[in-house]
């Protein structure tokens, strides 16, 4: 009788335990368990406030918010576009609490590109990065790239990229890129002079070869521009355009006696008419010496410009 009572009590306890587990599971399944990142409800505290209350645990707290920033990017497709401000706030917090971090600055530069305002926020973070890591070429490169690619400020971009050229680990293509940016406003002579200066100042043979290649391209561009002038003259004399570059030497009224070399050191290359742009180009390079911009980039810049003008008009 006594043992039967204990057995009954035992079963009752097991039953109560199972009921408690079931209730817990049921309740847990009935409420929202998605993270605040997924819900788009992530609230980022003020960086100064977090810095004040970090109580010496700055590095660990910065790491924690860095993981949250990665979570925003990795949450789902389109999350960065929707939560750009949150991401910018998170990176601002991380880099305020621990400004010596490296990668988060460039992470921000890569992801904060939704609109002009976001790019400018990314740029402010990169400026902070440069102040803490003045010898890291990558931050200057990203900042220069943002000015060139998103904000259409070639001269500012050239200045920033020029600052990165001499830093350790900087790739050889930076100086030719700066030259190309400078050529847009200052012309080919400015670009060539800059490269010559770079050639004289570097000891790195790989970089020197890169710069020499860029100087060659500028010389070919000068020749292409000479052929452009000849093409205009051909039009004036013959009342029509050339069908191929060799027409400049032939026809009833030729304008040239011979064509310059299309490649300075190698044979087998010629001047051709680019089927897309209709420009005279060297078959070696396939395009003219300029900053290349896709149609999508042109459209984006136009869209941003219109948005900016719209906002200004509203403000007025």
């Amino acid at each position: 009788m006594h043992s039967a009572c204990w057995q009954k009590r035992g079963w009752l306890r097991v039953g109560l335990l199972l009921a408690a587990i079931a209730t817990t599971g049921f309740a847990h399944s009935r409420f929202e368990t998605r993270s605040r990142v997924e819900l788009g409800q992530l609230q980022v505290p003020s960086p100064d406030y977090v810095k004040l209350w970090s109580l010496g645990f700055d590095a660990a707290i910065a790491d924690y918010y860095w993981l949250r920033a990665i979570g925003v990017v990795g949450a789902e497709e389109g999350a960065v576009e929707e939560q750009g401000e949150v991401l910018a706030d998170l990176i601002d917090l991380v880099t305020t609490v621990d400004p010596w971090v490296g990668h988060p600055y460039r992470f921000a530069a890569v992801w904060l590109t939704r609109d002009r305002e976001m790019v400018e926020r990314g740029n402010r973070l990169l400026e902070r990065a440069i102040s803490y890591h003045p010898l890291d070429w990558r931050n200057r490169y990203h900042l220069g790239f943002n000015y060139f690619y998103y904000l259409d400020e070639q001269m500012r971009a050239a200045d920033l990229l020029e600052g990165a050229i001499g830093l350790e680990g900087a790739p050889g293509y930076l100086a030719p890129l700066v030259a190309r940016l400078r050529s847009k406003r200052g012309g080919l002579q400015v670009a060539a002079a800059f490269l010559v200066q770079m050639i004289e100042s570097t000891e790195d043979s790989y970089k020197k070869a890169e710069y020499l290649k860029a100087v060659d391209e500028i010389q070919i561009e000068e020749r292409a521009r000479f052929l452009d002038d000849a093409r205009v003259e051909y039009w004036r004399r013959n009342g029509g355009d050339i069908e191929q570059v060799s027409d400049l030497l032939a026809g009833p009224k030729p304008v040239l006696q011979r064509l310059p070399r299309a490649q300075l050191h190698l044979d087998g290359f010629e001047w051709i008419l680019d089927p897309e742009s209709g420009q005279i180009v060297s078959s070696y390079y396939g395009s003219r010496y300029q900053l290349h911009e896709s149609q999508a980039d042109r459209s984006r810049k136009q869209e941003w410009r219109e948005l900016g003008e719209g906002a200004e008009a509203e403000g007025a």
Partner: peptide, 24 residues
């Protein structure tokens, strides 16, 4: 384990958390 969630600076993060736990 936490540092494995990051794709960069994992070793540094391990040390950050270790220092924090030592102090705390």
């Amino acid at each position: 384990i936490l540092s494995a969630l990051s794709y960069v600076d994992r070793e540094r993060m391990v040390q950050d958390f270790a220092f924090a736990s030592i102090r705390l």
